[in-house]
Write a protein that binds this DNA or RNA. Structure first.
Lengths: 138, 138
DNA sequence: CTGACATATTAGGTAAATACTAATAAGATT
DNA sequence: AATCTTATTAGTATTTACCTAATATGTCAG
């Protein structure tokens, strides 16, 4: 428990972008991530190399793919995000604010703990944005 | 709103230590913080200089004092901490885990937002540790 | 197949945050 | 005054997070 590999906010952001594009026909290119994050390609390359070191990403010939571990970390973060958002909105916070805050903490909290909260608040099927909260794990 | 000066986790930790000692007869010395944080004095000095730049601390002749702004930031973080802890424990999380998580996020979230939550959950007077949750602001 | 253009990579540089050791300065205490 | 404890300075290293400029690698039109 809580043995998740530490990532930074930027690494989180890149991971999310990679995960969000996972079902698309064409893989995300460096320039795409570069555009989405408003950072220059060399900066992104650097970021991706760190994600590679952490085992979340594999790269060859300009292609970047999430590894199994990367996919499951991505899913955990997204799920954390939606559950935290739900919890905050349920407790009086404005949706936009909740989303912004969640972005800054969803990758810092271990998924197991968030999962407990999910159970406790009655396994809501959707976050306040209307997006599905799935239980990804087997 | 949300115009709080960005601080890092280490800066937060030092701020908390300074705040916790505020009522004591003798001021906290560098070595004290050094001991409490298990970091060498030069590292702490560096940290304090950054807090000074951010206007949270004033230093002269080895003495370190929180400024007005430092005190109020300290209080906001402590309050954030206790409210977040309360929220998490109320929603099924183990107290120790909640405390640990709260430590990592209490300084990242603007106090106004947390205050909304506080109102919504019925202004509990104590956190799960039994410590007072006060409304410090006028 | 060959330029031209787009994209990726390398190289090299900067800055902030986080640490350290070793040396020096300043205070306090005996 | 000598000693001991603290504080400070100087110098070094690593990680994250950026950049520009140069080079390499594709790719696609003709």
């Amino acid at each position: 428990m809580s043995d998740e590999i530490r990532i930074t906010k930027k690494e989180r952001d890149a991971l999310i972008i990679l995960g969000n594009h996972i079902d698309e026909e064409f893989p995300v290119r460096l320039v795409d991530i570069s555009d989405e994050m408003s950072l220059k390609p060399p900066t992104i390359l650097n970021l991706l190399k760190r994600l590679e070191d952490k085992g979340y990403v594999e790269r060859e010939k300009g292609m970047t793919v999430l590894t199994k571990s990367g996919i499951s970390r991505y899913r955990e973060i997204v799920e954390n995000h939606r559950i935290l958002e739900t919890l905050m909105v349920k407790n009086g916070m404005d949706l936009d604010r909740a989303c912004l805050i969640s972005e800054n903490i969803d990758f810092l909290i271990d998924h197991e703990s968030i999962d407990n909260i999910f159970e406790k608040i009655g396994k809501p099927s959707k976050c306040p944005h209307g997006r599905k909260i799935e239980q990804f794990h087997e």
